[in-house]
């Protein structure tokens, strides 16, 4: 009743536009307006979802993260003085190695504090992205699949193809071991272990195990991640001009 009267009073003033907006919101979204908030925020949030798309555009029904969208955003975050920190949320199945490493390198070289949270899955090339941030979290139920890189499509059957693949894999291994506490031996052991995945080589690491192996820093969700990010921002402000970390 209260609401009805409120709407009626409003529609009298500005009958057409108000009812139009309200019905549009209901037909399109099934919801009415959410209160608007302050547009400025010092923490931005980047979501890495679905497949990480490489040089070949995936069919439109695939949910993808495109590097041509993500990279300019990271540049904008670096440029904007109002943005003080970045939260990276991952729920990805992996995808293109080059594109994934490009995003990971961009995040690793960002001068502002970054914290990542793996929700659901941070598989395959999602692993370097998760570890590229200053601090990483994984939720209790989230998983990360670590496996050797694969090549699809036409391949020339020459030793050089294998060498090329091996080099590419080495880039991933080096990046992960450089940006996390996992040792190269342990990471390779997980990558090449047999009997864990159905008819495949590799390991599916669950939340607390990823922390135990040193791949991820801590088990936690969004509140812990935000608290950590604020702490890193404060540390950066306090230690301006001094070396941090």
């Amino acid at each position: 009743m209260e609401k009805e009267r409120y709407f009626q009073a409003e529609t009298e003033e500005n009958a057409e536009t108000k009812t139009d907006e309200a019905t549009a919101a209901i037909t399109q979204l099934g919801q009415t307006n959410i209160p608007q908030m302050e547009p400025d925020t010092n923490i931005h949030c980047l979501t890495i979802v679905g497949q990480i798309e490489g040089h070949v555009q995936l069919p439109p029904q695939n949910k993808t993260t495109k590097y041509e969208h993500v990279i300019p955003q990271i540049v904008a975050i670096e440029q904007n003085p109002k943005i003080e920190g970045l939260l990276v949320i991952l729920n990805t199945v992996g995808g293109d190695v080059e594109a994934g490493l490009a995003i990971a390198e961009m995040l690793a070289s960002l001068s502002k504090p970054t914290v990542s949270v793996v929700l659901g899955g941070g598989h395959s090339i999602g692993v370097p992205i998760a570890v590229s941030c200053n601090y990483s979290f994984i939720t209790e139920t989230a998983t990360m699949t670590i496996h050797p890189i694969r090549l699809t499509g036409l391949v020339i059957g020459v030793p050089q193809t294998f060498e090329y693949l091996d080099k590419m894999q080495e880039r991933v291994v080096r990046f992960v071991t450089k940006h996390s506490n996992i040792s190269e031996e342990k990471f390779k052991e997980l990558m090449f272990s047999k009997g864990n995945l159905t008819r495949d080589i590799g390991t599916n690491v669950i939340g607390p195990d990823a922390v135990q192996y040193g791949l991820i820093d801590e088990v936690g969700g969004v509140s812990q991640a935000m608290a950590k990010l604020r702490q890193l921002i404060e540390m950066k402000k306090g230690g301006e001009g001094k070396m941090i970390q």
């Binding site: 979204l29 547009p39 923490i43 949030c45």
Partner: peptide, 15 residues
């Protein structure tokens, strides 16, 4: 990447 842009119904999927 601005989380506040997700709170405005004008910018929600379906709009």
């Amino acid at each position: 990447t601005n989380p506040y842009h997700f709170l405005n119904a004008k910018y929600a999927p379906g709009a």
